[in-house]
């Protein structure tokens, strides 16, 4: 099918985007990479009266940039550019690891990091990475701008806490530093949304203890950063980690049944993948 007719706007500046959203707010959709929005329009699951195409914004950075201890990602940084960037490789390996699981090269050439986070699909990799890394969205409107931390941004499936006239002008992620990271997922076909996935971050603490944080993909209405109790390296290698992840998977995750897999199977995957990702993240730590 083809999209229903809409009024089209191609602003040149962030201020013009603010103005258009102030005027058309609830009837408008921002078009970034289009890799999630256009399928929805093609299938007529949505028919917004106005489409605001931000691809014409002038003077936007096309790659992530380092500002202080924070990596800043503007609204036109494509998945491919973020994945290939030297800065991502050195300062945010988790972002590169997560991007490798996002769709295919021909989708990553257009899709944007900010668009993926704004889309807030709990089955997507980047919102989970954003939650695990405790990122922050810089949100703006004609009324001003504010920061929204990851736990307050994702409300539910495809729903964020943005007001109708607001949009995300950039996403900020603290550099990973000494923290080790890993991503694990299980999908029916490569590049598909996973039945279950998980990103893991390992942080060293005094007394050679390790804090592990997990954020699951496709295991509830919104990605959440979940911390395991502090463990030692031998705990991570043994039953203590298995037990901690099992408890977390049973108490904190809300997988659902669908045609692809049962909730029970997804919870089992969550346990196995969680343990694997945690061990790999902790292993990356030892190499520092």
């Amino acid at each position: 099918m083809k999209p229903a007719p809409f009024a089209y706007h191609r602003p040149r500046t962030r201020e013009e985007v603010d103005g258009l959203l102030a005027e058309f707010g609830g009837e408008a959709k921002i078009l970034a990479g289009g890799q999630s929005l256009i399928p929805i329009l093609n299938m007529r699951l949505a028919a917004p009266a106005h489409v605001i195409d931000i691809n014409g914004l002038a003077d936007e950075l096309v790659e992530p940039a380092l500002l202080g201890g924070t990596v800043t990602i503007g609204p036109l940084v494509r998945h491919a550019a973020a994945e290939g960037s030297q800065l991502t490789a050195t300062a945010l390996p988790l972002l590169a690891q997560a991007l490798a699981y996002v769709a295919h090269p021909a989708i990553r050439s257009r899709g944007t990091v900010v668009g993926s986070i704004a889309h807030a699909d709990p089955a997507a990799e980047l919102p989970a990475a954003f939650a695990a890394l405790e990122g922050e969205a810089r949100v703006r409107s004609a009324r001003g701008s504010r920061s929204i931390a990851a736990p307050d941004l994702f409300v539910s499936h495809l729903e964020t806490s943005l007001e109708e006239d607001e949009w995300i002008e950039e996403v900020r992620l603290p550099v990973q530093g000494v923290r080790g990271s890993a991503v694990e997922e299980f999908a029916r076909r490569h590049g598909d949304y996973a039945l279950c996935g998980v990103v893991a971050l390992a942080e060293p603490r005094a007394g050679s203890r390790i804090v592990l944080a997990l954020a699951y993909i496709g295991m509830g209405p919104a990605p959440v950063r979940l911390e395991l109790p502090e463990l030692t390296a031998s705990d991570v290698a043994g039953d203590a980690l298995e037990d901690a992840v099992r408890t977390l998977a049973h108490e904190q995750l809300e997988p659902e049944d669908d045609i692809h897999a049962s909730a029970r199977y997804r919870r089992w995957l969550a346990e196995r993948l969680g343990v694997r990702a945690a061990r790999r993240a902790a292993g990356a730590l030892e190499k520092h």
């Binding site: 089209y8 191609r10 078009l31 289009g34 890799q35 093609n42 195409d53 090269p105 021909a106 257009r110």
Partner: peptide, 12 residues
């Protein structure tokens, strides 16, 4: 770069 021509408006 390879891209899906079904997921891009010609105007973009």
């Amino acid at each position: 770069r390879p891209a899906r021509s079904c997921l891009m408006f010609a105007v973009t």
